[in-house]
Amino acid sequence: MIVLDRVSFSYGARRVLRDVSVSIGFGERVVILGGSGEGKTTILRLILGLLSPDAGRILIEGEDITGKGDGALRDVRMKFSIVFQEGALFDSLDVKENVAYCLREYTSMSDEEIEARVREILASVGVEQAIHLMPEELSGGMHRRVSIARALALSTPKMFLYDEPTTGLDPVNADNICRLIADLSKDGKGFIMVTHKVSDALKVADRYIFLKDGALLFDGTGRELLHSDIPGIRVFVAEVCPPGPDCAEEQGGKHV
């Protein structure tokens, strides 16, 4: 269980999160929605201990990680795999070496074994043909897929974290990434996906959290989200579900 207990966070004078409390199970499929600058990505970074909250506590499976350093957080971080916005692939390494990054450091596999494992993972996300390309030679969709492949390489994480995985992609590629995210969670593995695209969110998740002005405005199912009469949410979901009862029934929880 991931627990954020009355967490507040600021970037300098700008308050991003105020007294946010939420609990997320490792098997849950959760999307955090909200406008730009509402603190969605900040929550992912807080969960990984890449940022420390100004106030409140963060507990991962009962362990309070608040304020801990990189060394103490290593085991906690190994429970997650994160796909950052834009992929965050290492520019100086080709696709094979990006995916093999952790394998080379943490395993004693031979070069042949590593290549076979990398090919297997790349095939599972549909980009095996890109194995020898450099990151700058990849399209946006391939970039995200390779980043997901790298997240899968070493171990079987308990939970995936996706930071805006479909941003900047055309509808077809965005749909493919959503399908991949849904497939990866089929064996009971949960994820937290951060996005501002409601249409993509509705394809993959069971639970929706909506942030507004640094506070938790909504926490519920897709159907509840689409039926919500909270003005801030109504504006946000209007792109996929204009006002009217039929749309909410059709769209709510429609997975890819």
Partner: peptide, 13 residues
């Protein structure tokens, strides 16, 4: 580009 964060998340110093 979040590559340093990636290194931290992978467990490297």
């Amino acid at each position: 580009g979040h590559q340093v964060d990636t290194i931290r998340v992978f467990g490297f110093d």
